[in-house]
C-alpha cells in the first residue's frame, strides 16, 4: 500500500493470520482478523475498510460473538458516517 506507517505490514500480517485461522476453521478468529484489517485499512481505503467491517460484523454476529460483533457494528457506523460526510 506504500504508506509510511507500516500499515501494509500490519495488513499483510493480519491476512496471514486470517488464512491461518481459516485453515483451523476458527471462524471467530477470522472475523476478528477482518475487524482488525478494517481498522488498519481505514486511513487508506474507507470503502474497503467499511466492507471488511461489515463482513466481520456479519460473521461474528452469525457465530453469536455479540460482544465483538457490536464492536464491528460500531466501526461500521463510524465509517458509514465518515463515508457519507465525504460524499456530501
Amino acid at each position: 500500500m506504500g504508506s509510511g506507517d507500516g500499515a501494509s505490514d500490519e495488513y499483510v500480517g493480519l491476512e496471514v493470520l486470517s488464512n491461518q485461522a481459516q485453515s483451523l476453521v476458527a471462524q471467530r478468529h477470522v472475523g476478528l482478523c477482518q475487524l482488525a484489517q478494517a481498522v488498519v485499512l481505514t486511513p487508506h481505503d474507507l470503502r474497503g475498510a467499511l466492507d471488511l467491517a461489515k463482513l466481520a460484523e456479519t460473521r461474528l454476529r452469525r457465530l453469536g460473538a455479540m460482544l465483538e460483533a457490536d464492536r464491528a457494528g460500531e466501526l461500521v457506523a463510524e465509517l458509514t458516517i465518515r463515508d457519507r460526510a465525504r460524499t456530501l
Binding site: 483451523l24 476453521v25 476458527a26 471462524q27 471467530r28 478468529h29 457465530l63 460473538a65
Partner: peptide, 11 residues
C-alpha cells in the same frame, strides 16, 4: 467449539 467460533451452537 468456542475456539472454532461455534458460539451459538454451544448454548
Amino acid at each position: 467449539m468456542r475456539d472454532l467460533g461455534m458460539i451459538e451452537d454451544a448454548s
